[in-house]
Amino acid sequence: MIKTKTFLAAVALASSLMAPAFAAEASAPIEKQTWSFAGIFGTYDENQLQRGFQVYREVCASCHGARLIAFRNLAEYGGPGFSEEQVKALAAEYEVVDPTVEGGVRAGVPADRWPSPFPTEQDARDANGGSLPPDFSVLAKARGLVDPFPSWIFNYFTGYSEGGVDYIRALLLGYHDEVPASAPEGFVLPEGKYYNDYFPGHAIGMAPPLQDEQVTYTPAEGEAEVPLTVEQYATDVAAFMMWMAEPGLVSRKETGFRVMLFLFLFAGLLYLTKRRIWKGIEH
């Protein structure tokens, strides 16, 4: 049995060897949130995704595209749980570019990707004071946070994958009207930029996008009233961005449970088989 223990120790050692993930550097530590989709049992909260979608659509989508998201994704398993009809109606509200039809644009269908808010990257920059609003499709996985030693080691065992959403939520809440006392010494805010605690370099091109009561939520049946605050909006839209970046999370974990169960069973049986075979052989 000692051999098995050394083997397991080696596996643990190998995994702890793997270097910590670096990410956008933040001056203030980012508070980790309890997300419904965290951990091995985590799944998306449909109501939260629907609220987040509403915030994205009413606030963010005028500047931020989501080119990898198709309307049909909104009705797919493990997502915000819209019905096929809702998605069809939603898609039809948008005009999509299609060079094969007369006039070059037509009404959207569920198979279409989310239309880009700007025709070209240069248009996007011109409309935003030279800054490019990043596409949201995988943004939640393109951001992260730096975990100090030793917690990045534990992350391999807890499967912590919410650094991006924690960062995005913190960023949306990290604005200041004026440069605060906590700013680095000698910090000068360039013209047309805004101070943010968590943005690398602190000078962000995006004006504070959210205000209290900006988006009116309609509570789902049996759901408690959701506060109409910037904090709530930021949390919801961050969750929605996680879904955009990883739409298959729920089914991936479900498959994972079946695979793990199988592996433990098969490993157990193989151990017995192996022991039977080696019985009577001194080794």
Binding site: F266, L270, L272, T273, R276
Partner: peptide, 11 residues
């Protein structure tokens, strides 16, 4: 044990 292991492996 052999049969069970083989069957589970095949699955």
């Amino acid at each position: 044990i052999f049969v069970a292991t083989g069957a589970v492996g095949a699955v």
